[in-house]
């Protein structure tokens, strides 16, 4: 793969901690994911009431993008030039299950909306106005080669100038996000090894 794609920022959320560019920027005190999400939202964002309506998958992805893109020059790019490639193992199963539990009573339309894994990309796009290409892969494992190749292709062959690349997984109490911002110039080339290093880093 040609070196036309560079990692310019990273955000990891797992085990009640949030890391921005390898630095611990938030540690949750509450016991669960919901507490972490709410506290981190209050700390990093606020003023976006729609956050509370999102499902955990969308909240996780949205929050990682929020932390990663704060004051980023990417926000000044043309909206059509920012896209994303996301992936996970369980698609929207976490919410599918909760939605299914409401069906026998009165099914909730607001929950049904989140029974698709790509809604998290929609939420990030709505937040920032991003209109570039989006795709979502469902893979058994974190597939660094797939994510690397696809993001590099998008930057090389389409009008995209920046791309969020992420693994966003949640199922019951288990969750993790590994998100990288990828751009056409930078110092750290986007490689599968670099993404694997990011994902596997001990925290």
């Amino acid at each position: 793969m040609s070196n036309s794609a560079y990692i310019t920022g990273t955000c990891i959320i797992r085990e009640n901690k949030i890391f921005l560019n390898d630095k611990l920027v938030w540690e949750g005190e509450g016991p669960g994911l919901q507490e972490l999400l709410r506290a981190a939202y209050d700390h990093f964002s606020g003023q976006y009431p729609k956050f509370h309506k999102m499902d955990p998958l969308s909240k996780l992805g949205w929050l990682a993008a929020e932390v990663l893109l704060k004051d980023s020059p990417v926000l000044q790019l043309p909206k059509e030039a920012v896209g994303m490639v996301l992936s996970n193992r369980s698609a929207s199963l976490d919410t599918d299950f909760r939605y299914y539990a409401t069906v026998k009573d009165i099914a909730s339309p607001a929950l049904f909306v989140y029974t698709l894994p790509n809604i998290v990309m929609g939420e990030i796009c709505i937040r920032h106005g991003f209109k570039g290409e989006n795709t979502f892969f469902v893979s058994e494992q974190f597939d660094a080669a797939l994510l690397t190749t696809y993001a590099a292709q998008l930057l090389a062959e389409t009008p995209l100038q920046a791309c969020l690349v992420a693994w966003v997984e949640v199922l019951e109490h288990r969750y993790e996000v590994a998100m990288a911002l990828v751009e056409r110039s930078g110092t750290q080339p986007l490689t599968a090894a670099a993404l694997n290093f990011l994902y596997n880093k001990k925290i």
Binding site: I106, A107, P109, A110, V113
Partner: peptide, 17 residues
Amino acid sequence: LGLDSIDALELIVLLQQ
């Protein structure tokens, strides 16, 4: 309140519940 079309559907659920 800035509600949207999905909120409207949830209000319909509220009336029913």
